[in-house]
Design a protein around this nucleic acid. Structure first.
Length: 365
DNA sequence: GGATCCTTCTTCTTCTTC
């Protein structure tokens, strides 16, 4: 909750005051600091904006040089100031490094010694991750065993069930807006259509890579216009230039199961991207996703699959890197987001937190 | 035959004026 002293706030423009409040609300986890931060913003604003003060201001002792960057960001309406990064930066200016909240850390302990990526050296690009073993033969395709082991959590279920409250909020808001626009039935149809297109796209990529894998290891085939269902032609065109960099396909739509952590999933693809062995996820998207940060939990998904594959006896090689490929329906160039070993480890750790959280929530079931 | 499994997607601050 934010309290604003109205007699003081009257001199502020409404939108600037709101800006300050929004910044404070954004940092919900550090209430005392935020309150203090708000006071600082408030103070700084007054130092700057007090109209030709003739009287001694209560704030005259403020070191305005020290707060100049804050002043700029608060007063300027052109600065995109309300990003988590800028807030972090400004906070650390005042308070030093932020001690991260541990609220998402569950009490159920996943063994931390389980290290999924053995070679975390980024200079090993000449090694394909298979530790010297070259790969021959058709790609692995282990279909999901419907063995009735419903208790084994899947990657998507874990990620879905452990979305943060903020993620849930935005998703719910988006859903409400879509239903308002399309109606309940329209929204259902829209969602089904998205899933159908995603499924068709995956099948098309799968077929493409299967042919490619049997054809040659080194020379990729071309995406041939007109050879796919109309509704996914654009998606295929979109990733055509990325597929040219894919070679040495080792697994396609194959089930992975982590023997120790006991979770499973289906990895889209394991192949070399520009010579580096990666766990690959193909994604369709309506919105452009030019940055890795636009892909939400996709990197966790990739790290979870790679970690599972490395902990699965059915696969005799290790995967230490990842790739997320985003395709667009209008055929505009897709985006390839490679994940190096360091990023993979980082996302693996985040995945473990989510897995722990899931196990904690479901341990009584 | 029916039910279930794993996926397929969806979010990212948000306003007004030039």
């Amino acid at each position: 909750m934010v309290f604003v002293h109205l007699s003081e706030s009257r001199r502020m423009h409404t939108n600037q005051l709101l800006n300050c409040i929004k910044r404070v609300v954004f940092c919900t986890k550090r209430t005392p600091h935020c309150t203090c931060l708000f006071e600082r913003y408030f103070t700084v604003h007054h130092v700057l904006r007090s109209p030709k003060k003739k009287t001694t201001s209560l704030y005259s002792s403020v070191d305005s040089g020290r707060y100049s960057s804050l002043v700029k960001s608060v007063v300027s309406t052109r600065v995109s100031s309300q990003t988590p990064e800028s807030i972090e930066e400004e906070n650390s200016h005042f308070y030093g490094p932020v001690v991260k909240s541990h609220t998402r850390t569950s009490k159920v302990k996943v063994p931390k010694h389980v290290h999924p990526f053995l070679n975390c050296d980024d200079d090993d690009d000449d090694d394909d991750g298979a530790h010297g073993r070259e790969f021959f033969g058709p790609p692995t395709r282990i279909s999901l065993q419907r063995d009735g082991k419903a208790s084994v959590p899947s990657v998507t279920r874990v990620l879905q069930d452990t979305l943060s409250p903020l993620q849930r909020f935005y998703l719910e808001r988006w859903k409400r807006r879509m239903i308002t626009e399309l109606g309940e039935e329209g929204f259902k149809e829209y969602t089904l259509n998205l899933f159908r297109q995603g499924g068709l796209f995956h099948n098309a990529v799968e077929n493409f890579l299967s042919q490619d894998a049997t054809a040659t290891e080194t020379k990729p085939a071309d995406v041939i216009p007109g050879s796919y269902p109309t509704e996914i032609e654009g998606y295929m065109e979109s990733i055509g230039y990325i597929l040219e960099d894919i070679s040495g396909v080792r697994a396609i739509e194959s089930t992975v199961h982590h023997g120790t952590l006991d979770y499973r999933g289906i990895v889209d693809c394991v192949a070399r991207y520009r010579g580096v062995l990666c766990a690959i996820e193909w994604k369709t998207s309506e919105k452009p996703k030019p940055h890795l940060s636009n892909t939400f939990d996709n990197p966790l998904q990739v790290a979870a699959y790679a970690g599972a594959l490395n902990g699965d006896n059915n696969y005799k090689y290790q995967v230490e890197k990842g790739l997320i490929v985003v395709a667009y329906k209008d055929g505009s160039p897709g985006h390839a987001h490679p994940l190096n070993s360091t990023q993979m480890l980082d996302y693996w750790e985040r995945w473990l937190v989510r897995l722990e959280e899931y196990m904690e929530k479901n341990k009584s079931r």
